[in-house]
Design a binder for these strands. Structure first.
Length: 662
DNA sequence: GCACTTTATGTTTTT
DNA sequence: CATAAAGTGC
């Protein structure tokens, strides 16, 4: 435990009660968690099986596991839980399903599946409407609001209709034997709350909890934590209110603010020494975040010297910005004789990566995009997951609909419509009514053959999948449906080849997973829903990292480029109201504090919106960094606030407020 | 009624 | 660029 500072050491050794560690960016918070796990096992004699560390992303969980393994080299960590909130939720659900009337082979719906269910219920094809409803439902679940309560709280006709849709949505999911992401927290909470025996069992099993990124917990996750820790309240929560960037997902900083109230004997330890960034970067970050209403006072400091000045480039438009950033990065790298892997380019939205990728390819600079479209969201992978989901749970209608249509087998929209009506009338799933004798009366005669053939086909593989490992069955299923040929017939040869390569990679991933933990079909299927990026360990590759600001949290880079610093991008156009501006500011803060040695900012004077180039204004956050250490280039300093532009901004704000009132 | 082709269109952030 | 809606041939 050498080279820990006194605050870190205190945080690791404190065991007398609940502990909140306020860990500033780069203050070694992951280190505190991993060292504390080692301390609890080595020095305090905890059984690893009685410890759980909870993170928000798989990436964080994986990294933590690796660091713990290294720290405890040789000693057993068997039974140690290091997982995301959602994975822990699945584990609890799987063990306790019978208490809430689900089968253990339940499906996990992703956002697309849930969207389709809600669209059907609302009878709406308008995307914006359904999306609003989806957010509403998600917010209710995250706040542990039941359909009944939502109905009671409804203020007007619209809210009442939404609450009814919510109720119907829950019923439908239950009929499908399916849960959504929010259920993975909400259901375990109700379970632990309402069943004392279950609660005691889990409290007994998880005797000490460590929670990472505590500021990102939502109400449901906080309740889960309370129920798991119980009266003993043996936990360490580590967080940073300045890095709370998931408010839009229901995360609530109130959980941080109210922790001292809920636990009067809560011990508070602050980590303020930053081991990551040079002084100039840290000063800029401190100046920026000072514009937020602060929850806890915190001043980061560093012993790492002044470092390079922060540069700001003004570019004509998005393409020019991408080009300039790539050129600047090249020049900087030559001058420093550095590696590509020392550089990251960070941005607000995924779409900003495209222009960058183009120039990086042109310059033959290796790069990796993190965030962005997940491997498991690719069409070919979703196709196969749906087959697995259907084999695992034949009540999973969304999976049925996809599997029955890919590849095409002579069953089209009209037939599925008729089948859906029949299934609805019989109160059974699509797959179930395929086996009924009455089927012939409800679909066209010539449709009968392909439908029955599909039913047989699934049934045959289902029996095999019950006995054999999914990774063995899947390749045969692929051959049986002629998937490779289908891909070739659908796409250009080279896209078809990449897609098939993805399929092969997916099968390999499944095999590796299965070998690792002896996964059953239902475990594998559920794991697929939760694991987002294919966990290829690629830190070895020397490549520039492209990442959204959200996905960059928890990472650090020697040199950071932060692009698109314009009003409307960062802060985002739809985040003009006060508390959301604060979250955008924290997002900027996260970006700034990723940098160790140098930080390069850029923004455009004009940006393409649709087919037109719209003039834009530099982000207010640039001004808030303090001018002292900024070096401008490309177009001089940003123009002083211009009245016409302010008027424009005001008009935008008014439009938003009107929309909300109406 | 089904399958495949063309055309428009649009993108906050993620478990 | 990748998906979704509308249009065309069978």
């Amino acid at each position: 435990m050498s080279s820990l500072n006194p605050a870190q050491r205190a945080a690791i050794r404190y065991l007398d009660g609940p502990l909140l560690v306020l860990a500033g960016a780069g203050s070694g918070k992951t280190r505190v968690i991993t060292e504390k796990i080692a301390y609890l096992i080595d020095t305090c004699g905890f059984n690893p099986g009685n410890l759980a560390a909870i993170t928000f992303t798989n990436k964080a969980a994986k990294e933590m596991q690796a660091r713990v393994d290294k720290l405890l080299a040789g000693r057993s960590t068997k039974g140690l839980t290091i997982s995301t909130f959602h994975s822990l939720g699945v584990r609890i659900l799987r063990e306790e399903v019978k208490a809430i009337g689900y089968k253990p082979n339940f499906s996990i719906f992703d956002a697309t599946d849930c969207f389709a269910v809600l669209a059907e219920i609302a009878g709406s094809t308008d995307k914006a409407t359904v999306r609003r409803l989806q957010t509403l439902v998600s917010n209710w679940k995250n706040a542990l609001v039941t359909p009944e309560l939502a109905r009671k709280n409804a203020q007007n006709e619209t809210e009442l209709r939404a609450a009814d849709a919510f109720a119907a949505y829950c019923t439908t999911l239950r009929a499908y034997q399916a849960v959504d992401f929010d259920d993975l927290i909400a259901l375990p909470v109700t379970l632990l709350r309402d069943h004392a025996a279950v609660r005691e069992k889990w409290q007994n099993r998880l005797r000490y909890l460590l929670i990472d990124e505590y500021q990102d917990t939502n109400a449901a996750q906080y309740q889960m934590l309370r129920l798991l820790t119980g009266a003993r309240a043996a936990f360490t929560a580590v967080g940073d209110d300045d890095q709370a960037i998931y408010g839009w997902r229901g995360a609530d900083i109130a959980n941080l603010r109210e922790l001292p109230r809920d636990y009067p004997n809560l011990k508070l330890i602050k980590l303020e020494q930053n081991y990551r960034s040079s002084v100039r970067i840290l000063q800029a970050a401190n100046a920026l975040i000072a514009h937020n209403e602060k929850l806890f006072d915190k001043q980061l400091w560093s012993e790492l010297g002044p470092g390079e000045p922060i540069t700001v480039s003004v570019c004509a438009n998005g393409e020019k910005e991408a080009e300039s950033v790539v050129m600047k990065l090249q020049a900087h790298r030559f001058q420093q004789r550095g590696a590509f892997g020392d550089y990251a380019i960070l941005y607000r939205g995924n779409f900003q990566a495209r222009a960058l990728e183009q120039f990086l390819r042109e310059q033959r600079i290796p790069y990796l995009v993190s965030g962005g479209q997940s491997f498991f969201d690719k069409t070919e992978i979703k196709d196969l997951s749906c087959y697995l989901r259907l084999l695992n749970n034949t009540d999973d209608d969304p999976a049925f609909l996809r599997a029955v249509s890919v590849p095409r087998r002579g069953v089209g929209a009209a037939t599925l419509q008729a089948l859906g009506n029949y299934a609805g009338q019989r109160q059974r799933s699509f797959f179930a009514v395929l086996g009924e004798h009455g089927l012939a009366q409800h679909v066209q005669e010539r449709q009968l053959a392909p439908l029955l053939e599909f039913h047989d086909f699934i049934e045959r593989f289902r029996q095999r999948a019950a006995r054999e490992a999914p990774a063995l069955v899947l390749p045969e299923l692929l051959a049986a449906i002629g998937y490779e040929a289908w891909l070739l017939s659908q796409d250009e040869p080279r896209t078809a080849r990449t897609r098939w390569a993805n399929v092969v990679e997916f099968v390999d991933w499944l095999a590796a997973k299965g070998a690792e933990e002896g996964k059953t079909l239902s475990e594998a299927t559920q794991a697929i829903a939760l694991v987002n990026m294919l966990d290829r360990t690629t830190p070895e590759v020397d490549a520039v990292r492209l990442s959204t600001l959200h996905a960059a949290k928890g990472l650090e880079f020697k040199h950071v480029f932060l692009i698109g610093l314009e009003e409307g991008i960062l802060p985002h156009r739809e985040a003009q109201i006060d508390n959301r501006i604060e979250e955008e500011r924290r997002l900027m803060y996260v970006g700034v504090t990723r940098a160790q040695r140098s930080l390069h900012l850029s923004y455009c004077e004009k940006r393409r919106q649709g087919r037109e180039l719209i003039p834009c204004r530099s982000s207010r956050f640039i001004d808030e960094l303090g001018r002292a250490d900024l070096r401008f280039s490309g177009g001089g300093e940003p123009s002083p606030p211009d009245r016409s532009l302010n008027a424009e901004r005001f008009a935008g704000l008014k439009a938003i407020l009107n929309k909300q009132a109406g």
